[in-house]
Design a protein around this nucleic acid. Structure first.
Lengths: 214, 214
DNA sequence: GACTGCTGTTACCGCTAGTAACCGGCACGT
DNA sequence: ACGTGCCGGTTACTAGCGGTAACAGCAGTC
């Protein structure tokens, strides 16, 4: 059967592609985001041109690699957003899920957040202006969607939800990045501190005696 | 005079260094963060080895370049934090200062936030584990300092202030990055949305009818 | 048996960061 | 006046990168 054979071909090449991605994964996890195409090809037991046939160029391979991890992380965050309890519980669960993920796989985190890409060919690329860190954007958009569909925010709720989505994600990102580097206290405490911040404790706190005030 | 001449030498080399930095600045602003050392040397009217004598390696030059802009931005943020008015006014003024800066000089912003550095030599570097985006860290630490010295946050105020400092900076960063790319509404509106978020409107908002709740 | 499509190779290009070795002028001690 | 360092500057090079052209072998199809 012709179509059957074509299907076999297609699934075979897709399996091959997945194998290559796993090899690339191993190398990136071992050598960091600066892994060279030669190293990845060697790890996969082949040579460079095959990688280029499968992924086009280096950023194509990196995008494919990032998509896997990003999808996985976003899925766990979604389930955390649907966890039982009141709103504060859900927010804390989501923060916990994110921080737990970056704590468990810091190499993956580093790869996703600091990919160190560089087109290096002027503006010949298709859409060279693209941001090199799409994970933050995707998390922000996802959270904005959830906020917009679940909260009653008045007339301009779409705008507000997106600003908040990206803002909250950024808060989680920067605080997590700092915390992961220093580990000054427990994950649980960071979650509570951030939730407190979102719950308006900054606005409610009193000025320190003798300070010009904030 | 010996010391006088030595002073002349020192100031001369420092002036030269500043000239080279300005040339590098021009090239980076024109070509983006992927500017090559050759291009920078050409812009300065010299050749590569002199750059390497002055700055060690590429990341040294980039660090020196980033330090200038980072210092300038942090200074304007500090003055915004000291602006007159109540706390909400100060927070909004600071957000405005940051967003205004990245809006006025997006190329500088892109260089500072997405430097695309790559050591590429395994772990031979001095402290290769360093984060490639120090601006966020410095802003976070600065804000944490201000918070800790001006707000009364109870016993573990130092911890809390740092978590909040980095968190707020991250919120500002991610929301600003998204906003700068899409410009869906005015800067003023984004400032108000983010301040609302910090003022606890997320916790106070009601659930939408028929949603599972957030 | 010729044709086609796929995986794989070797060998190369142009570019990059970074370095070694050398050249010339200018201020110094004697 | 004369070496003698030092310093800004150069040319010419290395090693490695991303990326590609051209070719080799092996399946299945007509």
């Amino acid at each position: 059967m012709e179509t059957g054979q074509r299907e076999d071909r297609r699934t075979a090449t897709e399996r091959r592609r997945a194998e290559l991605l796993e090899a690339a994964d191993r190398v990136v996890l071992r050598d960091g985001p600066e892994a060279s195409m030669n190293a990845i090809a060697a790890e996969a037991g082949i040579t460079k041109p095959i990688l280029y046939r499968h992924f086009g160029d280096k950023s194509g391979l990196y995008r494919a690699l990032a998509k896997r991890h990003t999808d996985a992380l976003l899925a766990t965050l979604r389930t955390a957003l649907d966890s039982p309890g009141d709103r504060r519980d859900r927010v804390e669960a989501t923060l916990h899920a994110y921080l737990g993920a970056i704590e468990a796989h810091p190499q993956v985190y580093r790869f996703l957040m600091h990919p160190a890409e560089a087109p290096a060919d002027g503006e010949k690329g298709l859409d060279a202006g693209r941001h090199s860190v799409p994970l933050l954007r995707r998390m922000g958009e996802d959270l904005a969607e959830v906020i917009a569909e679940r909260l009653d925010l008045g007339p301009d709720s779409a705008q507000l939800a997106r600003a908040w989505g990206h803002g909250i994600v950024g808060m989680m990102y920067a605080a997590g990045d700092w915390w992961l580097g220093e580990r000054p206290f427990s994950r649980d405490l960071l979650v509570r501190h951030l939730a407190d911040l979102l719950w308006g404790r900054l606005a409610a706190a009193g000025d320190r005696a003798g300070s010009p005030g904030l």
